[in-house]
Design a protein around this nucleic acid. Sequence first.
DNA 1: TGTACATCAGTGAACGCGCGTTCACTGATGTAC
DNA 2: TGTACATCAGTGAACGCGCGTTCACTGATGTAC
Lengths: 229, 229
Amino acid sequence: MAHPRSARERARAELTREIKERALTQLAERGADLSLRAIARDLGLVSSALYRYFRSRDELLTALIVDAYDDLADALLAADAAVAEERYAERWQAVCAELRSWALEQPHRFALVYGSPVPGYRAPATTVAPAERVMTALSGIAEAAAAAGALDAAAVPLDPALEAQLSAVAGLLGPRVPPSVTARLVAAFAQVIGMVNLELAGHFVGGFEPADLLFAHSVRELADLLGLR
Amino acid sequence: MAHPRSARERARAELTREIKERALTQLAERGADLSLRAIARDLGLVSSALYRYFRSRDELLTALIVDAYDDLADALLAADAAVAEERYAERWQAVCAELRSWALEQPHRFALVYGSPVPGYRAPATTVAPAERVMTALSGIAEAAAAAGALDAAAVPLDPALEAQLSAVAGLLGPRVPPSVTARLVAAFAQVIGMVNLELAGHFVGGFEPADLLFAHSVRELADLLGLR
DNA sequence: TGTACATCAGTGAACGCGCGTTCACTGATGTAC
DNA sequence: TGTACATCAGTGAACGCGCGTTCACTGATGTAC
């Protein structure tokens, strides 16, 4: 698996990659509708040939989604690693900034995972783990701060039922983070994704363009709110 | 215009309404792809007949989008009006709750305006004013509080360039609200839309279901953050 | 090292669909005198 | 009130496209002896 052996295997791996690459280019050019025939045309193949590589259009879509989550998570972790470990607020800002950059550079991939679901497509369970990698790239900072005793956690009283829900996701988002901070993490995540989506959809046109300053400012306020320093 | 006169005009108004209604049903059933032929079929018409009512598919889409913004704004204003005028925090919570209810009841309409743009469709300027009605339904509460001297505005120092951008939208969002609160209003809006979008897209599945409590809690925290009381 | 057989990538035709938009037309509704 | 003409809703055929998926096939690559 590390290095494909035969020429056949090498060719297969490369074509699989090329198919996904063309699919992404097409998403970028034509919007959300993915056409297997158009991909095959671009690659100089007959449309049925694609079925040697992906069992169906949905399977190709799933592969693209998994790749997108993974790439995004990698980019976020890299941005995080570039900041000194104990500067939690700066790490948060760097990761959020990277998320936005990644989205602006590849809006179609961002839309694929955080935009409206593609009509007729239902994401399989395979996509859950990669999606969680993205969330934990953000929440991991709060968890690290909490572990280091550097999280200024405001103790907010919560509805017991909500607290139970929050504890249930604590395994994923970070067990040392108090429930009220977990709630804020989810809200903060929604805000970041929401701002990027609004920007990409052109809802800020006329008001905030570029939205760099607004985004950076909001992200800084979120870091405060989360108790990161 | 108040009451269509002739039978012809009455029939035209009614069919226009029916076309939009069928279009919405179809969006709900088939996802984001809107088919004029399918709408015509549903109405027992020949597809070309629709061109007497809408010049193109895009024009129909635009009409649906404008209607969605308008309906949503109306619903928000109604929810706002149901709360005592000077209870600003409660008004905010009521309006946000109504926004979520509306979205959960009509996810396709919400996706139409706050989801990823429909491929190949570019929203015309006609949609800007209705979109702003929705935003001001939320920001109007902060503006009212500010006008009544009841806004606990935290004075946060801002980058001058950002402050300029914020002042530019102040005419729309409320001139008496200080810039730092305007920034928070936009961020809060993004958070609310973002949470609803994540919920609709199934990103909360397994963690927060139903998301009622999390949403209500986050919205309450936003009210605090905005200085509403 | 060479041959026999198995694997599998890619072909090309076909099935059975779908779509938006244009156009000349019929026939009903509305208007002016 | 009745007739002549104009307006306009809806028809049906056509244009020129698109799509995902299946299937029997050829011929090249890989494997076992």
